Simulated scan of single mutants.
Amino acid sequence: MSATQDAESRKAPRVAPDLIAHWVVKSARTEEMVRWYGAVFGAEIVYQDEGITFLTWDDESHRLAIIAVPKPVRFLFPFAKFRRKAYGIDHIALTFISLERLLENYVRLKRLGILPVWSINHGPTISLYYEDPDGVRLEFQVENFDAENTAAFFFTEEFAQNPIGVNIDPDYLLSQLRNGVPHEELRRREAGTRPGHPVVANKKTITPKTL
């Protein structure tokens, strides 16, 4: 056995969990949250009492738990939903398996009056960011490359010059997709900008709304 093989055999076993199971939030807006996740995820109530609600949208026992806190709390902490903009967890990212599924879901939610607060091509992903009634931000994304090429993208000059991305128009991107333009072409960061409109890139994409 070579030294390299011996070192490989002595590597520590993988210790990361196998799957992400659920997340839990404390909210004074349980009813609004249940309606929102019902619309966005097709979530159904698994169990509910005065103190907690469990929701799921797949074969997991529950994907989201909402712990009820007294409704007056929302008035005691009127800016609590903006804390994310300055500190703590920024967002949770969820992947769609194709650009078509991501954009068709965008259309479905738009019909329900639910719009992304930020639409951007980061380079590695095309991402639509939504916020639930409590301000928890969810990134719906599709990968532009496989894992190996995404890792390589981080070391390109393009990423060095613009690590944030380029804002996109989801409707324009979808119209191109429906006209037969393949994802391979649409993954270019400028592909989501309508002709005649300025390209909004890098730090210019950051506004009070998108932050």
Rank of each mutant, 00 (worst) to 15 (best):
W36R: 05
A39I: 06
V40L: 05
F41Y: 03
F41G: 00
G42M: 02
I45F: 03
Q48M: 05
Q48P: 04
L55Y: 13
W57I: 08
W57M: 14
D58K: 11
D59R: 13
D59M: 01
E60T: 14
H62F: 10
R63A: 05
I67P: 00
A68I: 00
V69C: 09
P70F: 04
P70H: 02
P70G: 06
K71S: 06
P72C: 05
P72I: 07
P72H: 09
R74L: 07
F75I: 13
F75Q: 08
L76Y: 00
L76I: 08
L76Q: 09
F77D: 07
A80P: 13
A80H: 14
F82G: 08
R83S: 12
R84C: 04
K85E: 14
K85H: 13
A86I: 13
A86T: 15
A86F: 15
G88T: 13
I89D: 12
I89Q: 14
I89T: 15
D90V: 08
I92L: 15
I92T: 15
I92C: 10
A93R: 02
A93G: 13
L94P: 03
F96Y: 09
I97C: 08
S98C: 10
S98L: 10
S98D: 03
R101P: 01
N105T: 10
N105H: 09
N105M: 03
Y106R: 06
V107W: 06
K110L: 07
R111G: 12
L112H: 11
L112T: 11
L112A: 13
I114C: 10
I114L: 01
S119F: 02
I120E: 11
N121T: 14
N121E: 08
G123N: 02
G123I: 12
P124W: 10
T125R: 05
T125H: 03
T125Q: 06
S127V: 08
L128C: 11
D132R: 04
G135I: 15
R137D: 08
E139T: 03
V142K: 10
E143Y: 07
N144Q: 00
N144H: 07
F145C: 07
D146P: 11
D146E: 05
D146C: 14
D146H: 04
D146K: 06
